[in-house]
Amino acid sequence: MSVTVLKPGLLTSLQDGGRPGHAALGIGRAGAMDEPARRLANALVGNEEHEAALEFTLLGPTLRFERAAVIALTGGECGARAGDWPLPLWTCCLLPAGSVLQLGGMRRGCRGYLAVRGGFDAPPVLGSRSTDLHARLGPLDGRALQAGDRLAVGPPSRGPSPRGLRAPHALRWSLDPRPWLDDGETPLALLRGHHFDALDDASRQRLFTARFTVSKDSNRTASRLDGQRLALRQPLELVSEATLPGTVQLPPSGQPIVLQAEAPVTGGYPRVGQLAAADLPRLAQRRPGDAVCFRECTLAEAVERLARRQQRLQRLLHHIARRLESA
């Protein structure tokens, strides 16, 4: 079974949970920008959570499914149709053989996820099917989808594939997306970084009060923030050290950069903050021009929020699996 890419969308790539364990060799993790959305998409089609899904950005792809398929769409809110049939998001949809799935522009949020039962298949690179666009590593030699690409779909790990369908069909229930969607307004929780104290007085305050906007130069490597500039009391000569997704760096331009899923493994700019991991998917869903405000957060709070979100996600994943089995 394969899927043919008719239109690639703005930036669409295969992503799984990432490629941990190789940063010492200069290889980053990559992986989905909104990891809960990716995992939920997999759960909705009955996949194991490690399967790769398509991550699309602002404008989704158009794909032709050679055979009948079970799919789910999560993440940002985009228009989706199979032929003349509008498809709901955050649920399990069945497509007949030959369906053309058209994903439109994102009405809300920035990144969407498409999972297919059986998972998109590609040879894993260092244990992962994530695309590292920067290092050109992973499926399709590490590049984004192009028209004409054919994506293989693996055999389903559970559940039958639909046969004899004449029209697209969606399950009657869907997830409540609200806990997993960003409202575009909530201030993002930020830990102070090692060089926070090197900011001048006004900048220390500004970091937690200013309204930044997401720059159009943002990508899977980093969200660049426009609007307000920050300044150091005096220039710092720093030696490169490890960086992480969520690290807030301050380059000489004074415009903060929040590293994302494709964070480089090392960097030499002052680190003024670290975004709480629970808020990384929120930032990933903000689009160019959207507002970003930070609020100060303690490590204990960040750890607690992350643990709570994981528990909530686990519960929901179990619940979805049970519900699919009983269907």
């Binding site: 941990p20 010492a24 030696v239 490169s240 490890a242 992480l244």
Partner: peptide
Amino acid sequence: VECVPAYASLL
């Protein structure tokens, strides 16, 4: 634990 050495620091 994943160790990531740099010039003067270890993640």
